[in-house]
């Protein structure tokens, strides 16, 4: 079995450097954002397991509004990689964790690679990675891609996550009582359609519908979920 791994993260966090460290390839790594305009693929073997690694474009969020975000998001929704590695710039964690939360909402099989630990350390940052892992409900692996620090641990974590043996709590981001009532109501309507709720995470669909996400509204139209679209006042 080949493990399908997707690398995702903000621009300029070292995704391509992690990709090269994982696959031993020599993809060009630029020190400016936007180097990765289309996805790159590479392979590696670790402890007898073969991995196919895809390097996705750097993005700040997962809305369907720009091409690079759509490429990344559709890859995760449609290709369903076995493991998604979210590369986080440890020296810029506040900005980076926004994407992490969106990936948790998408219910991706997530691992956080806390990269650029050397730069974070030089700024005097210290991390309680165990606590962070507990709060996010996913493994957190500290890395320095340029020196290959943490790469072996990252590969171990990928294999463990792909085996599905990870017993972690599912973290849900709450939106307060008013919104939660609406989210639950829409979620229940979505659950009535087993195919739809089996294809996409129902809570994610409900949240995106409330955000009036164009692509998700398109999905609901294809599934002819008129009742859901009426709830959010969507008219053709």
């Amino acid at each position: 079995m080949i493990i399908k791994v997707a690398l995702i993260g903000n621009p300029n966090v070292g995704k391509t450097a992690i990709f090269n460290a994982l696959t031993g390839s020599r993809q060009h790594v630029g020190n400016w954002p936007g180097v990765t305009v289309e996805k790159k693929e590479g392979r590696c073997t670790h402890r007898g397991a073969e991995m196919e690694v895809v390097d996705l474009p750097g993005i700040y969020s997962l809305t369907a509004s720009s091409i690079d975000e759509r490429i990344a998001r559709n890859y995760i929704i449609k290709e369903r990689p076995d493991v998604v590695v979210d590369i986080v710039d440890a020296s810029n964690i506040e900005r980076n964790l926004y994407l992490t939360l969106l990936l948790l909402e998408l219910e991706a099989n997530l691992i956080v690679a806390l990269n650029m630990m050397d730069i974070a350390a030089s700024k005097g940052y210290e991390f309680d990675t165990e606590k962070l892992s507990l709060l996010l409900g996913v493994p957190v692996i500290p890395t320095v891609a340029t020196t290959h620090f943490g790469i072996r641990e990252l590969k171990d974590a990928i294999i463990e996550a792909a085996s599905g043996k990870n017993k972690r709590r599912k973290v849900t981001i709450g939106y307060g009582e008013d919104l939660e009532t609406e989210i639950r109501r829409i979620e229940e309507m979505i659950m009535e359609d087993p195919h739809l709720s089996g294809t996409y995470p129902p809570r994610w669909l409900a949240i995106k519908i409330l955000e009036r996400d164009e692509e998700v509204i398109g999905i609901l139209e294809r599934y002819q979920k008129k009742d859901v679209l009426e709830v959010v006042g969507w008219e053709k």
Binding site: N10, N12, P33, D89, S91, N92, E94, R95
Partner: peptide, 8 residues
């Protein structure tokens, strides 16, 4: 070009 939260 602005610098915000460590990104340009």
């Amino acid at each position: 070009i602005v610098d915000i939260k460590g990104s340009r």
